[in-house]
Amino acid sequence: QVALSRTQVCGILREELFQGDAFHQSDTHIFIIMGASGDLAKKKIYPTIWWLFRDGLLPENTFIVGYARSRLTVADIRKQSEPFFKATPEEKLKLEDFFARNSYVAGQYDDAASYQRLNSHMNALHLGSQANRLFYLALPPTVYEAVTKNIHESCMSQIGWNRIIVEKPFGRDLQSSDRLSNHISSLFREDQIYRIDHYLGKEMVQNLMVLRFANRIFGPIWNRDNIACVILTFKEPFGTEGRGGYFDEFGIIRDVMQNHLLQMLCLVAMEKPASTNSDDVRDEKVKVLKCISEVQANNVVLGQYVGNPDGEGEATKGYLDDPTVPRGSTTATFAAVVLYVENERWDGVPFILRCGKALNERKAEVRLQFHDVAGDIFHQQCKRNELVIRVQPNEAVYTKMMTKKPGMFFNPEESELDLTYGNRYKNVKLPDAYERLILDVFCGSQMHFVRSDELREAWRIFTPLLHQIELEKPKPIPYIYGSRGPTEADELMKRVGFQYEGTYKWVNPHKL
């Protein structure tokens, strides 16, 4: 086992960053958080920038500027975001240094004079007029057009580079997404736009490419001749908990499936790229999406959770019991969808996408189930092999396979070949997804960000279904809070070829 401390991990990262040409360590950078008073800024962006600063992973002359409508001070920003920093008493001095680099400007999102004030403020910072500028839009999409237009007109660096990070949702359907994309691309070049999907920053999602293309053993079996089906799962054990009003506007397909799960599907299904260059990788992902037809209604199961009468606390409440959810809402909190990649490698292999709230566990994984062994000599005792990439929690890679049961006879039983990170790298604290992705933006690497043509294809696949749901308002199937979801989803999976045995229990190697 390799035991690495946080300091050692960050030392390795620093070495990698400083050796590259793309990370300008000594240049002045300004990180501007648009929507600095909001939840995302408070819980994710400010803490992430602090962790990067604490670990010495930001360029040395980096300033952080918050911008929002609320009249706040840096002290206010500190008060609301610091509880999420997880700072230790030993880091007190470092924390003071961090907040000394912070400033805040209040202004409207659609007022040109406010942006001119913001620009004057940035120019007044040390070497601010020639600094590289990175704008993070932690804002609702309704203000994107006004904000990007004003940034472009008043706040661009004339000497350094300018980059803009856009948070999902990128529209509600193909038409609104196209409108937003066309607007942003009329102001910024594609190499300046970073559409963030934080799932692409997760260690195991990034590991998929290495697993596939750096190991000879997987190449020959990664196709329709050997793989019976692919299941991509995202499960949350909690409901909307008072935030249903926002969720109800989008629903589970827009929230998770059309982005996170579809991105994971691309990494499983794509061909080997010409290189690890950002556009070479994204070219292959677009090719996969172009091979997927629009979702067919007979390959869809929609569910909505109801309270568990035997549960406790939140578990007793259904989705419609959330006071922020519109009365009688038919918005799905669970969806199972089957897609097919219609190309030579994957023809006929079902890709089953499942996601839901208020389920029995927290889990995100990719599961490849292989065909049955031909010419069975073990009297149907063999179960199908599976390769599982567990994204969260407890990152893991393992192969479910058959071995001989101890004893006199040739009785096979299920076991696993474990390729888990935790076994080799004991207690290594890896940077989280937002840390990686923000560092990628500083480096100018777009590999783990969504390109406009990729986004367009993703919406093309799901828009007809979303429009049909909005028009017909089908009643989702009720499922109990804390269950596996509607049984109809299991029946759909069985119908397209997935075999669920229920006889195997994964042993978490992190707890051995």
Rank of each mutant, 00 (worst) to 15 (best):
I469N: 07
T333A: 01
I352W: 00
L465Y: 14
L339W: 01
G422Y: 08
L368C: 05
F449I: 04
P464M: 08
V373K: 02
Y500S: 11
A433V: 06
R282D: 03
P412H: 05
P509V: 08
S278M: 08
E413R: 13
E271Y: 02
K400V: 12
E344I: 05
G502Q: 14
F334D: 03
H371G: 09
P406V: 15
F351Y: 03
D490F: 14
K357E: 05
K287Q: 11
V450T: 15
V388F: 10
R451D: 02
K505S: 13
G348F: 01
P273M: 02
V441Y: 01
V286D: 04
A315H: 12
G313F: 11
S293F: 04
V428P: 13
W506T: 14
N308Q: 07
Y500I: 14
G444Y: 00
A269G: 08
H260V: 15
F370G: 00
M401Q: 06
E488L: 09
L261M: 07
H467S: 10
K287D: 08
E454Q: 14
E414T: 14
T324K: 12
W346N: 02
L455V: 01
P478M: 09
K285Q: 13
I469W: 08
N343G: 05
E472T: 09
Y425V: 13
A269H: 01
A374W: 12
F449S: 02
C266L: 03
G497D: 13
E312K: 07
F410V: 07
L465P: 02
P406Y: 15
L339Y: 01
V341F: 00
G444N: 08
E472F: 07
L419Y: 06
L455S: 04
V366A: 06
F334H: 04
L368Y: 02
E414M: 14
G328M: 07
K426R: 15
K272I: 11
G485F: 01
L419H: 11
K426P: 04
G502K: 12
E386I: 02
A458Q: 15
E454G: 12
R354C: 11
C266W: 01
H260Y: 15
V366Y: 04
K505V: 12
L302N: 01
G485R: 01
L471C: 04
L265E: 01
G307K: 10
P393I: 00
N298R: 10
R484Y: 10
S275Q: 05
M257G: 04
Y305G: 02
F370M: 06
Q380C: 09
K290Q: 12
R384Q: 14
Y340G: 11
R484P: 07
I480P: 07
P509E: 15
D279K: 14
K363F: 09
T399R: 02
R362S: 14
D321L: 11
C382E: 07
A433Q: 15
L320Y: 13
V256Q: 15
N299Q: 09
L437K: 15
E344F: 05
P464D: 07
G311N: 09
E454T: 11
N277S: 12
P476T: 10
K400W: 10
I389M: 10
P323K: 08
G328T: 07
K357C: 08
R424P: 15
D418W: 04
P478I: 07
V349P: 01
I477S: 15
G444A: 12
H510F: 11
P431Y: 09
V341Y: 01
E414L: 09
M270G: 04
A297G: 11
A274T: 10
R367V: 13
A269M: 01
A364Q: 12
G422E: 08
F410A: 06
G313P: 09
R484E: 14
M264S: 09
E395N: 14
G497V: 14
Q380L: 12
Q369S: 06
L430I: 05
A297C: 10
K473H: 09
H371S: 11
Q263M: 07
E386D: 06
L439T: 07
L320T: 03
G311P: 08
L261I: 10
I389Y: 15
A396F: 15
T331W: 00
D440F: 02
N343Y: 00
R327T: 07
V391W: 15
K405Q: 14
G313I: 09
P464Y: 04
D372E: 12
V366L: 12
T503A: 13
L289P: 01
I292C: 14
D418E: 08
E284A: 12
K357Y: 12
G348Q: 05
R424A: 14
Y319T: 00
V397S: 11
A433K: 15
G348S: 06
E491T: 09
P273R: 00
K383G: 15
F409K: 14
E501V: 09
R451T: 04
V256F: 12
P464G: 06
I438E: 00
A336R: 02
R451C: 09
P478T: 09
H510M: 09
T331V: 10
C266Q: 09
A433E: 15
V397F: 13
G328V: 11
R354H: 12
C382Y: 08
N308G: 07
V300I: 07
N308P: 03
I477E: 03
L387E: 01
R460C: 02
G311W: 09
P406N: 05
I469V: 14
Y340T: 08
D310C: 10
N298F: 06
G497P: 10
M447V: 04
Q369W: 05
P326H: 09
T316L: 05
T463V: 06
F351W: 05
W346R: 00
D432I: 14
S415E: 13
K287V: 03
Q446N: 03
